[in-house]
Structures are given as C-alpha cells and as structure tokens.
Design a protein around this nucleic acid. Structure first.
Lengths: 259, 259
DNA sequence: ACATCCTGCTTGTCTGACAATCGGACCGCC
DNA sequence: GGCGGTCCGATTGTCAGACAAGCAGGATGT
C-alpha cells in the first residue's frame, strides 16, 4: 500500500478494438479519408496501431457494420457512404422491438408521406414521373397477386421519396414504409376491393404530381393512407396493438435484387 | 449473350462471423430471447456454433454495435433494446456524409417539428409540461451563455418529442434536432437578439401546449424555426450548402459523464 | 459471524498458423 | 500480337492455443 503504484485511478477501460474503431472513424468523419478511397490492409493497420490483427479485425467489424467501411469485390477495405436502406431497416427494427403501436406508425406515416408528396409535387423530374407511371402499369398488370402489388406499392412510395429530392425526409420516411408494407399485404389478401382502390389512389397521386398540384397530392395521399387504416381495422386488428414482431427482418437478409 | 452463363446470381459465400451474427439476431428478433435476458458466454457460443472463438467474437461485435446486445457491468452478454440516441447519431452521420443541404434539413425539420408539437398538444402530460417549464426557466437563467442556451434548446425540443408520445415521430425527428443544434449555437453567438426570441418562442409554445391549442402550437413552432433560418442567413451562410462535416460526432465519443 | 484468500470463469489481447481467393506476372500457343 | 493457362505473392477468413486481469463465489482462518 505504501507503494507508489496504489493511488492511480483507472485511466480508461476502453478496450483496444474500440479505440481502433474510433480512430478510423475520426479519420473518415473529419474528411481526411474520402468515400471510395481505400483504407490500408489489415496488416498495415496492425503496423499503424501496434495491436494484434484480431484486435484490428474486431475494430473493423464495427465500422463495417455501421456502413462507414465497405469491402468491395476484392475484399479490400474502402470508405463507403452509410446505406440508407440498412439504416432504415435498423430503425424499423428498433421501433418494433420497443413495441410501438400501429397508431403511432399511422400518425407518423400520415405526416411524413403527405409532406414528402408535397415536396415531390414541387420537384419531381420527368424521369421519376415516368418511373412512377411504369410502376402503376406494372401494378395494374399483376393486380391478381397481392404480394406483388404490395411490393410495388412500397416501391411507389419510395419513388415518391426520391422525387421529393429531400434526403432527410426520405430517410425519415423509409422506416414507416418498411413497417406498413407487410400489413398492406395482409389487407390486400383479405379485402378484394383493396387493390383497385390502391391503384386508383396511385393514379390520382401521380396525376397530382404531374400537375404540380400540392393540395390534390395531399388529399390523395391522406385518402390512400386512410384506406390502409380502414382495411387494417376491417381485418379485425386494433390500431393500439404493437407492431407484430414477425414483420421485422434482420438486416442481412435483404438481398433479392430488383428483377 | 447467347451464353448460358448470363442469368446466374452472384455467388456470395457469407463469412462465418456474419452467419453467427444472423443466427443470434434471428433468435432475438423472433422473441425467443427477450431483452434483458442473458446470452451464453463466448465459450458457450463457441460450442453451440462449432466455430472458433475469434469468429464468435467478430460476430458478437456486429450485434453489440447494432445495439441488439449489451455487456452489462459484469461484461456478460445480454439482450438490449437498440438505443434511440445512438440510432439518431448514426442517422445524422449518414446525412452529413451524403452532403445533405441545410435546405433539406430545414424543410424536414419544419414538417417533423410542427407535427410533433401538434401531437404533443394533444397528449402532453402535466409532468412533461413541468419539465418544459423548468427547461425554460433554466434557459432564462443562463441566457448569457450561448452554449448552454443551445443545449437547453435541444433538450426542449427533445422533450416535446417525448410529450408527443409517438416514438416513430420521435425517432424521425431526433436527427434533425442533432443537426440543427450546432448551428443554433453559432447563430446565438453572433446575433444578440437571438436568445430572447428563442426564449419567447419556447414560452409561447409551452403556453399553447398547456392550452392544448394545436394551431397556436403550429404557428409558434413555425415561427421559431423561421427565426433559426433567418439567423442562419444573417450569419452569411447559404441554405443550399451542405451541412458542415464538423457537426457530426462519432458515436463513441459521447463519454463525458454528467458532472 | 466476519474478513480474507484462493480458485475458477470469463473476457481482452496476443502469437502463430493454414486454406482459399484474388491480382498480376509470366509463359507457351495460335 | 493476342489469347489462354499457370504460377506466385498478397490478403482475408478461420483456426488453435496461450496469458493477464477482473470478478464471483466458495473455502479458510480467526
């Protein structure tokens, strides 16, 4: 005890792999390394940080998972922009796990979707309008298949997000999309007149976008979502119940490429 | 093209550490393991999965980073709810890295904050109203210190998020809060009349909340944000410029304990 | 009964190794 | 010269085994 080594407080119990992650993270966030630029190999990082490769690897995993780092085809490391889709998946997962109710979801979706659609009415480009048109045509074409319609519905709304040219809104809106989407499938399977109503709503929304008519846009988006809600209630469910666990997927499972 | 090799999906052998992560993730998402419940030790997982401990560790890191798994004081693993704050940090980081403009931020914030405030007007509890009141009093008290005012401003808006009792909105709104916040600091430092205006706006918003007056609420939130925008422009900046890199922090850096 | 010590268990880190894969150089053949 | 095939080095994914430090809980001495 009389020893000089006794009184020193714990400096920091932060494990080394976290320190490694932080160090690289700072480099990226500060802009010293730009997206797309390669990071050294594991061996190089080992030399730079003076820790073991296992430790470096654990640190790298963190960033890789966070999307700050990517491995391209060569399996080499490079800086990559965080992927919105992944983030949205994780947000929906968090929402489901905290047992958010359908009512909360509905309320938020109403706000976000109307706002996004209004922004889209201002700024939609001809290209996106064409994509929306194609989407509707395709929906009409597969209108017998609820699963396919559901998927196209989700795509439709994502396209509107893109049309808004506001990435903050897009990111905020995407989780509601992901969470509403599975329920839409259930509804369409149970309620026959759901699909035609959905298609009509999409048509009217697109029409409003083309005319740059924000009010009509708002009206039809509201109507569309209210249809969803009515359908939801007609399937015998309660808006106050939490979103079912089943609806959330792990973030590693979304790999089906766009056909 | 006439070749049969054109339609094959990309072969991608998923590395073992990812498989481990997915397996555990599925257990958690499906509800077989509940939040708070402990997961086996590393050694146990090694036995269950039949892979090396390094591999298990890399897999665990992924989930730990994603917030699905936590290490409590004993450093033992247990399931934990994803933390909203962390998610919001990561969202803002993604937005900054994709060079979102202040205009996008402003537009989204306008929508989200008004909607949140309206919801809060409906459902705010006396407890939260008291907290808001205390927050304003404190702001008044430190009105000489722009940094402190800024921090309290951020807290004020987070409280309104809580008052809305809509966690979807809350999560969607938080990133805009995080990103607007540093700029508010700059503005208050430069523009003297900023602080009193801010306090007045907070007062009026709280008043509207207490009267459950959604319209007044909306009006004052809009006014408050417009003040921010005017201040922003008066500091000589342009709404169309991307949000500065400096404003985003790594997610591991928030460690300064509350004094 | 209480304080103390010892003994595992668990995690964080390190050492060293090997197989598979990818990029590139090199070589032989048309 | 262009082409395909082969070999080599670099890099990653995975493994086996080891050790120090922190912590829990039981054994021990008083």
């Amino acid at each position: 005890m009389t020893d000089a080594t006794e009184g020193f407080p714990r400096i920091s119990s932060t494990p080394a792999y976290k320190l490694v992650a932080e160090a690289i993270e700072r480099q990226i966030l500060s802009g010293r390394i730009r997206p797309g630029q390669p990071i050294g190999t594991e061996a190089a990082l080992v030399k730079q940080f003076g820790v073991n490769r296992s430790t470096v690897r654990e640190g790298i995993r963190l960033l890789e998972h966070g999307g700050l780092i990517r491995r391209d085809s060569n399996r080499r490391l490079s800086v990559g922009l965080p992927h919105y889709g992944r983030l949205a998946t994780r947000m929906s997962r968090a929402l489901v796990l905290s047992e958010v109710t359908f009512r909360e979801l509905y309320e938020a979706a109403m706000v976000l979707q109307t706002a996004t659609a209004e922004a889209a009415a201002e700024r939609a480009t001809p290209e996106i309008l064409a994509e929306l048109e194609a989407n509707i045509a395709m929906t009409q074409h597969v209108s017998d298949d609820p699963a396919a319609v559901t998927e196209l519905d989700a795509e439709f709304h994502t396209l509107i997000g893109k049309a808004s040219q506001n990435r903050v809104l897009q990111l905020a809106r995407e989780p509601t999309n992901l969470l509403i989407f599975p329920t839409t499938g259930l509804i369409l399977r149970k309620i026959k007149e759901g699909t035609p109503r959905l298609i009509e709503a999409h048509r009217m929304i697109l029409d409003a976008l083309q005319r740059r008519d924000k009010d009509a846009c708002r009206t039809w988006v509201r109507r569309h979502l209210n249809d969803w809600r009515r359908g939801f209630e007609r399937t015998g469910k309660d808006l106050n119940q939490p979103i079912d666990r089943i609806y959330v997927q792990g973030e590693h499972s979304a790999d089906a490429g766009a056909a």
